[in-house]
Design a protein around this nucleic acid. Sequence first.
DNA 1: GTGAAAGCGCTAACAT
DNA 2: ATGTTAGCGCTTTCAC
Lengths: 355, 355
Amino acid sequence: MTIIRMEKDITIYDIARELDLSPTTISRALNDHPAVNKNTKQRIADAAAQMGYRSNLFASNLRKQRTNTIGVIVPRLNSPFMSSVISGMEKMANEAGYNLIISQSLETLQKEMANAKTMFDSRVDGLLVSLSYETDQIEHFENFINRGIPVIFYDRVAEHRDCTSIVIDNLQAAYKATSHLIEQGCRNIVHITGNLKRNVYTDRLKGYKYALVDHDLAYDDANVLINNLSEEAGEQAAKQILDMKTLPDGIFVSNDTCAVSCIKTLKQAGISVPKDMAVVGFNNDTISRVIEPNLTTINYPGQEMGEMAVRVLLLQMNGTEERAPSNTITLRSELIIRDSSLKSKVSPKQRVVLI
Amino acid sequence: MTIIRMEKDITIYDIARELDLSPTTISRALNDHPAVNKNTKQRIADAAAQMGYRSNLFASNLRKQRTNTIGVIVPRLNSPFMSSVISGMEKMANEAGYNLIISQSLETLQKEMANAKTMFDSRVDGLLVSLSYETDQIEHFENFINRGIPVIFYDRVAEHRDCTSIVIDNLQAAYKATSHLIEQGCRNIVHITGNLKRNVYTDRLKGYKYALVDHDLAYDDANVLINNLSEEAGEQAAKQILDMKTLPDGIFVSNDTCAVSCIKTLKQAGISVPKDMAVVGFNNDTISRVIEPNLTTINYPGQEMGEMAVRVLLLQMNGTEERAPSNTITLRSELIIRDSSLKSKVSPKQRVVLI
DNA sequence: GTGAAAGCGCTAACAT
DNA sequence: ATGTTAGCGCTTTCAC
């Protein structure tokens, strides 16, 4: 039988013994405490490096009662939007010396609650959440709030007195998108969107509705299709549209994935986009610039949203005890006009509309 | 001045006092130790739930010297392939009760080394790595290996006696892709690929080369374009191709992003795909089914790769002290033939080629 | 089946 | 500028 010889971990006590100093001084020096002599610091740093010391975060966390860890709960990881968000979060967190623990709810309330519990037990210093489709109560975050652990919602948010939300102006975005379709001559516009439990979809529905009303067009529930905005759902929706007694002349879809598969199906059925039906998507995923015709869409700054979420969280974690004054942070987005919605000529300058 | 009253954490001592038992028994009961009376266990579980107890992972980790955490180092988070991988990892890890700490190297060696250090200091129980473009030495993982912390490479792997690698057969995939182009009548094929420091790209280059040779076609360095496979790089590459003295009749690109932007640029220049140039991509990202013509590509099972990576890691972390016998695990992939490469008719049955 | 005691490695009061 | 001491909450001998 072989015994694998494993290197033993070096502690501050080992360094202390080596340099004939107290563990306290070692600890202070390693944390760059001002009250330690420069030379001593250097000696300690050298010894630490030479001896292969690594700090034990668990001992430190146990003692300090904080973890330098941010929890992220996300509906799904593998969408272009969400991976941009996560990428932004990771970048910011990393710069600030924080770790990220990420888990996905897979759009179910049950997993979201389980994830929240894990995060709680992992004692994250703060939590970033985008809600699942199903979620209709947010009591599972009360634990955090009661103990003063900041919770921030982003994208799919909930109203909570003590929580900041980070969003784009979904209502405005949808309003601008729909108005754009109307300006292009559409008079009968279908809206495809997601579960109305989620703010993003209710707000977009409102924007769609208000735009119609403001342009003296009738709003009709029958023109609103609700699904999960997946590729399959897009195909499905296209078929529903093709079955309508009067075909619409415009479609506003709540994400690009669904919009693109919808366009593909419509084209296969002989519908010309934008001539017969103009289409607008949402998110500005890569596919929007690949589909033909290129998809008019809302540019949703995922990376920025991720960065902002962490930035605000850091402020709340390290700032004063007071709650942040502003409860909602709205990021800028924009309508990017491409060929899928253009029935008339538009100069390149007018192809971006700020929201 | 207001004092925010914060709920205090309940410890096993609190429960012990409450039930007039020792902390030891509480600890054992909560960990389902067999030597604790069933009734006592139940009483303790009830009390814990009622008092709102949560275990302190840091104290536990400090004591047990393990963390239930898996570290993941990834070049970039926001690619469709990588987010599938991560999604698979998260799913598996979560099921096994492990947390994931994720960081991105942003394709630089320097960040990769920094990330490795953070992971090391966070005392992850195991590490999953896909190498950055730049990485040309892997000493920064020796720390882990020396202490018996398993390191697994996936996708962009390195040779290491003690580390398992998880890959697809890149050589075969490229061979099949190139052969397919040749079978479609291509005689002058360009290959666009990434940094040859990475196995994935060298192997694909080899597969391309061998396919040419086996079909009695000349290999020419001038037909190999190396770039970072980004959207911009695709545009750039297309321009280079258009400038060639004799235009190629086929292109094999090492990812879909680059292949798609290449096709877009070629089409704008009046080249017909596949008639003038047949194109094959790699990854089977969503865009491959959106571009017109739909892109022939290699289906790369990201989600599965992520799941497999965690599964193997769990085995190594919890299994015997011995190293896993197999050093490389190769996942199945497949060539999916679509219109971008089809100059002749092919029956639907022949549209998928296993690799 | 249960308990007493020690210690994982670190940091923060409180000295000096 | 440095040291002493205590304790964060848990698990693990060892004892009964």
